[in-house]
């Protein structure tokens, strides 16, 4: 079954098109990667999906229900998607205990929660992201960057989303922390049967976590396919260019053809 369908999506900021005519599908329980450089429009898609940015045309459907527009159905459909942000330092309210931040996100489920239910749910979620549930009362400043990113993941899960959108979630982290966050996402993916849209500029990271990859450039998708075949036999020239630009450990870089812009 299809968890997320994006159809002919276009987004413009003022007169400037940032995303033009993008379509993609995400099956339930799968992960798709959106990879591209800055300005390619990948984050705009994420923002548009959850309603943080207006779209100019096209449709976004979650479980077959359109998430575009102001109506109650669209609004409910949008809540089926939750976003994890890049910078764990600005993604948590510095004056709100982390438990309260997570509890607030249960609103997205659309159900009413008793105080006790909410509290036990917060504990459960903190355990799920491998944090001490007794620390729910602490402020974000008591946590390290990697821990904060776990908390934002817990918050996203509190909405019981069908689709998780991870927008550059590891770019602000050191590699040692990045690996723990990636492992956590994989683990949750298997345990909860989540569907994930994983957005990153880092090809290796996207490759590691995604079943299929869409390569974006200048607001459009220039290449897509299952991870292995796309990266092992890149057909689009831009994919090849991206691949060749990724440094490989211990291999001397070659610069012949790329010196001129």
């Amino acid at each position: 079954m299809t968890a997320l369908e994006i159809e002919n999506l276009s987004i413009r900021y003022g007169a400037r098109p940032v995303v033009s005519d993008v379509s993609l599908r995400l099956e339930r329980g799968r992960t798709i990667g959106l990879v591209g450089e800055s300005g390619s429009g990948k984050s705009s898609i994420a923002n548009a999906a959850v309603g943080l940015a207006p779209i100019s045309s096209g449709d976004i459907r979650v479980n077959g229900v359109s998430a575009v527009g102001r109506g109650g159905r669209a609004r409910a459909a949008r809540r089926r998607m939750q976003l994890i942000f890049q910078d764990p330092y600005s993604a948590l309210d510095p004056r709100m205990p982390v438990g309260a931040s997570i509890a607030e996100a249960t609103l997205a489920t659309g159900r009413t929660w008793t105080r006790a239910q909410r509290r036990s749910r917060v504990r459960e979620l903190l355990e799920q992201v491998h944090l001490d549930p007794d620390r729910a009362g602490a402020l974000p400043s008591a946590f390290s960057g990697g821990q904060r990113q776990r908390i934002t993941i817990a918050r996203a899960l509190a909405g019981e989303p069908d689709v998780l959108i991870a927008d550059e979630v590891t770019s602000a982290l050191d590699v040692s922390v990045q690996s723990t966050v990636l492992n956590l996402l994989r683990e949750l993916l298997q345990a909860l049967g989540l569907s994930i849209v994983f957005i990153s500029h880092n090809l290796a990271v996207v490759r590691y976590i995604s079943d299929a990859i869409h390569v974006m450039r200048d607001g459009g998708i220039v290449d897509s396919g299952p991870t292995e075949s796309l990266l092992d036999n890149p057909s689009a020239p831009y994919t090849r260019e991206l691949l060749s630009a990724v440094p490989v450990l211990g291999e001397r870089m070659t610069f012949e053809e790329t010196a001129e812009p």
Binding site: Q82, L83, F85, S90, L92, D93, A108, R155, G159
Partner: peptide, 11 residues
């Protein structure tokens, strides 16, 4: 800030 955007996303 992102935390306000996050709050808007959860509704």
């Amino acid at each position: 800030q992102d935390y306000v955007r996050a709050a808007r996303v959860v509704g």
